[in-house]
Amino acid sequence: MTEKAATHQLHPVAAGASAKDRLLTWLDFNLAVIFNVPTVVLLAGLVAFPTGLVIWTSLTDWQLVLNKDPNFVGISNYVTIWQEERWLGGIFNTFYYAIVSLTGQLVLGMATALLFNRNFAGKSFYRSIWMMPMISMSVAISLVWAIMFNTTYGMLNFLLSGLGLPELAWTADPLLVMPSLILVGIWQWTPFMTLLLLAGLQSLPTDPFEAAKIDGASKWRVLIHITLPLMQGHILVALILRSIFAVKEFDTIMAITEGGPNYASETMNMNIYFNAFEYGYMGVSSAKGVIFFAFILLIQLVLIKLRRRQWSH
């Protein structure tokens, strides 16, 4: 990159150049470095250093109450966590939540993106309202959902009984708690999916659609045979981005169920939070944190690989 900077060097320092010129020239030559000093220094201190530290603490038996002076125990934390049933349940719940809510968001997001892709008056008004769930504070809207789910005075059971259907226990039922939380996830994050897919729809080439129109293809056939195949890349990119957030979901689950009933809705993220900051198992939690990050990296690598393969076709 220094080469590039040099080619843009339009006025080399002459022999008797002023200090200001010399400073400007020096700045130009080193621009790529100087401009990145704040970002790199801050991220090194705030992200790289903690990541190094967490790897070290994950190799100790540190516990805030019982074992205040951490001993080095090697990789034993990484071995023992796999015998912990609650942690395994957390892994299952994390993926259950991520996969089902992402699927729901994708289907609904695609449908709404197609709707928003039409031209009509008042579109920006609808879009403002549509964006509100993803922009509002998760904890706040979780409280609203908690009341909606309430078994005795909640809106959902009121609607069910109004329709003559049996009432459900929602978040109090160990089997229904995850689907209930997934419903909240879909409600909150479908709008983001809509935005991403809408941007994709708007960037599609127009020729295939014009050709289809001339051939007199029905709207449904255009969707199945032209729009969706062309959108594959955009769908994968949206999934790459959204999967990170879906796997990390913490706020809504914490505020609605705190992982209950009986850990039935506890995800990896929450399991680590409770183990570290409520029970004080710093060593074990660090190891779980590293594994959690490894899972996220793995998902990203798989999705990015899928996208590359699809692009090479």
Binding site: V47, P50, L53, I272, S286, G289, I296, L297
Partner: peptide, 18 residues
């Protein structure tokens, strides 16, 4: 920078807290 966006906050919170 993209990778720093992937690191979950909870993984960094143990060292931050220390």
């Amino acid at each position: 920078i993209l990778v720093t966006r992937m690191i979950p906050y909870i993984t960094m919170l143990v060292p931050f807290w220390i």
